[in-house]
Simulated assay, not measured.
Amino acid sequence: MKLVLAIVQDDDAMDLIEELTDKNFRVTKLATTGGFLKSGNTTLMIGVEKEVVKDVVKVIEDVCKRRKEMVSTPAPTTIGSGSGMYMPYPIEVEVGGATVFVLDVDQFYKV
């Protein structure tokens, strides 16, 4: 048995959960927070047999596409010298995709 941990952007989470459950995979959702833009993300835990890990990863790849978005800078930029005025500026960043870990499971109980 394997445990697939998939960390995905919040915008992709519900579509991914729906797709996984439609394919009869059981999913547990955890709300988590990313470090780079302090944006919300979701960690999904999916317990599967070793033989279907590739199927789960394929679904994740199909749903969680990388894309570019404009976001405000996490820390504002000072304008002028010592004016005390802060102005955030937009930057283009790549979002989406997924970070996936596949872990061995020694024991599994459903009680």
Rank of each mutant, 00 (worst) to 15 (best):
L37W: 04
V8G: 07
V52C: 09
R66E: 14
M70I: 15
T33W: 12
I79C: 04
D104Q: 06
K23C: 01
T32V: 11
T28Q: 13
F25I: 08
V63H: 04
K50I: 11
V111W: 11
D22K: 00
G97H: 04
L3W: 05
G40L: 12
V63P: 01
G47E: 12
L20R: 00
I91E: 02
Y86A: 13
V95P: 08
V48W: 09
E49M: 10
L37V: 08
S72K: 15
T21W: 00
T43F: 12
A13V: 07
G97Q: 08
D15V: 05
V100K: 00
G82F: 07
V100G: 01
V4N: 00
Q107R: 15
E49V: 13
K110Q: 12
D62W: 08
D12M: 05
L3H: 07
I91D: 02
C64Y: 04
V52L: 10
L37Y: 08
K38T: 08
F36K: 10
I91F: 01
G80A: 05
I46R: 05
G35V: 13
D62P: 11
K2G: 05
V52H: 11
G96Q: 09
K38A: 13
A6R: 03
K68A: 09
V71I: 07
I17Y: 03
K38Q: 13
S81L: 10
L103G: 04
K23H: 04
K58C: 11
E69L: 08
V56R: 00
K110C: 06
I46H: 02
I60H: 00
E69S: 12
V4Q: 01
V57R: 09
T32K: 07
D12F: 07
T33R: 15
V57E: 09
R26P: 12
S83C: 01
A6C: 01
E69H: 06
M1F: 03
G34L: 05
G84M: 05
M70C: 10
M1S: 08
Q9M: 15
G97F: 04
I7G: 06
M85C: 12
K29R: 15
N41T: 06
S72T: 14
A13I: 04
T32H: 02
C64S: 06
E69M: 10
D11W: 14
D15S: 13
F108W: 10
L3G: 02
A98C: 06
K23R: 09
D22A: 00
G34K: 10
V27N: 01
V95H: 08
K29E: 14
D106A: 11
R26E: 13
E51Q: 14
E51A: 10
D22Q: 00
Q107S: 15
G35S: 12
Q107Y: 13
E49N: 13
Y109M: 13
V8H: 06
G34H: 09
V93A: 01
D22E: 03
T32Y: 01
V95L: 09
V27D: 01
E18S: 09
R26I: 15
V4S: 00
K38G: 13
Y89L: 13
N41V: 02
V53I: 10
I17V: 13
M87C: 09
